[in-house]
């Protein structure tokens, strides 16, 4: 769990993504209470209004839900939902920037594919 932010995206979006990460990684399970705004303010050193904005976004998407007077909880099927969304935006978020960089460097598609396979093999072992 990283408490740092980059300046390319609004902070509340990055807060949202950090909570999503915890859900995707399984640190936060379904129907589990997510950390309170105050806890997140302490941890991330981000204003509570910004945290709320990120949480509201997740609530609107149905990833988390609110129990009055108790806090926010992970919704049923949240992990699946987040994964689906991330798959849908995978091309935009990761592949496109990669291809742009490859183009800048003059790498062919085959060379890129080769590199991908190399990284995968490296990971295995």
């Amino acid at each position: 769990m990283d408490a740092s932010f980059d300046d390319q995206k609004p902070i509340f979006i990055q807060i949202k993504e950090k909570i999503e990460d915890q859900i995707v990684n399984g640190y936060l399970q379904e129907d589990e209470k997510i950390p309170s705004t105050t806890q997140m303010v302490d941890f991330y050193k981000v204003n509570h209004l910004t945290i709320s904005k990120g949480m509201n976004l997740l609530a609107d998407e149905g990833v988390i839900y609110k129990k009055r007077g108790v806090g926010m909880f992970v919704a049923e099927g949240a992990q699946r939902k987040v994964k689906q969304q991330r798959k849908a935006s995978f091309a935009d978020d990761y592949v496109r920037p990669m291809m742009q960089e490859a183009e800048k460097l003059g790498l062919s598609e085959d060379e890129v594919n080769h590199l991908i396979q190399q990284v995968r093999r490296g990971d295995r072992g």
Binding site: V41, Y44, K45, V46, N47, H48, L49
Partner: peptide
């Protein structure tokens, strides 16, 4: 006048 440390407290 030390803003960076406290800015997250300001609404």
């Amino acid at each position: 006048h030390l803003v960076s440390e406290m800015d997250y407290l300001f609404d």
